[in-house]
Design a protein around this nucleic acid. Structure first.
Length: 269
DNA sequence: TCGATCCTGTAG
DNA sequence: CTACAGGATCGA
């Protein structure tokens, strides 16, 4: 599921469906999801709060509750967060759920159970997010800022893009897609990438995320036309050994930071 | 900066 | 059976 576009799509849907709802109770089915916080304490403190607003910082979903507390939900690899009509009929894989006034449910479904749900008081949230960098779809994400940040890091370009403390919200797929659009080699130390290519990369990050957001929102539209899945057209991710759509070269897969990176060795230099 | 780790599901 | 998975953290 979740890089910035999918997380943003989740937030937008929750704002429509759940904003203003009273939470009758919260149940943590898998204590590991809230650790090191206490399951009983978090359940007790969230009961009877109103979900006042839904925000996003990077890949973090922030559920603002009455009383100034905030639930931070991180979907990690396989998490999803959505409203169901009847809280009694929860999907298998539900790790945490909230019963809302009227019987509807808010469900955190996460087959691998790697996700996180933490509760903060107003003051605590700030430090929990201190390592979350600039929002790539905000005004703050300027070319000048990006070039400066890149010049200061010797990380391979792909790892730089995936590091949440610089640009917040890119993950394995969209980092690879942005590098492809800008013709940047993923292993190239980012401080050594030329100015024109950094400019191209900056705008590629925006365009990739915007397109992916548009398709992520469609994927959540009424069932029937688009089912689950991704309609964003990937140029490189998951296309090992296929021909490059731009130069006809072969897409390669390498490992970086324990993850797969896909790129075209022909046109990414 | 790398590798192991947290988990479960699915594809080959 | 093994490999791998759209993430992040921890310790060596």
């Amino acid at each position: 599921m979740p890089e910035l576009p999918e997380v943003e799509a989740v937030c937008r849907k929750l704002r429509v469906q759940a904003r203003g709802a009273r939470i009758v109770r919260m149940r943590v089915e898998r204590p590991g999801i809230v650790q090191p916080q206490s399951k009983t304490k978090i359940e007790r403190e969230v009961a009877d709060c109103v979900l006042e607003d839904v925000e996003r910082r990077g890949k973090n979903i922030l559920l603002r509750l009455s009383g100034g507390r905030v639930l931070r939900v991180h979907l990690r690899m396989t998490g999803n967060l959505y409203v169901i009509p009847n809280v009694r009929f929860r999907p298998s894989g539900t790790r945490v759920w909230w019963e809302m006034e009227g019987g509807r449910g808010l469900v955190f479904e996460d087959s691998r159970a790697l996700g996180k749900v933490h509760l903060y008081s107003a003051g605590e949230l700030e430090q929990a997010l201190e390592n979350v960098g600039v929002e790539p779809l905000s005004e703050e994400f300027t070319e000048a800022w990006f070039v400066t940040a890149a010049r200061r890091s010797r990380k391979p370009a792909k790892l730089f893009l995936m590091d949440q403390q610089y640009v917040a919200g890119l993950g394995n797929i969209y980092a690879a897609e942005a590098l492809f659009r800008a013709r940047v080699h993923p292993e190239r130390p980012v401080c050594g990438v030329s100015k024109p290519k950094l400019a191209a990369l900056h705008s590629a990050i925006r365009s990739v995320l915007e397109e992916a957001l548009a398709s992520a929102e469609l994927a959540y539209a009424e069932p029937g036309r688009f089912v689950e899945g991704e309609s964003f057209a990937r140029a490189v991710y998951g296309r090992e050994a296929e021909p490059c759509v731009r130069c006809g070269g072969r897409i390669r897969r390498i490992a970086q930071g324990g993850r797969s990176t896909y790129f075209c060795a022909g046109c990414q230099r």
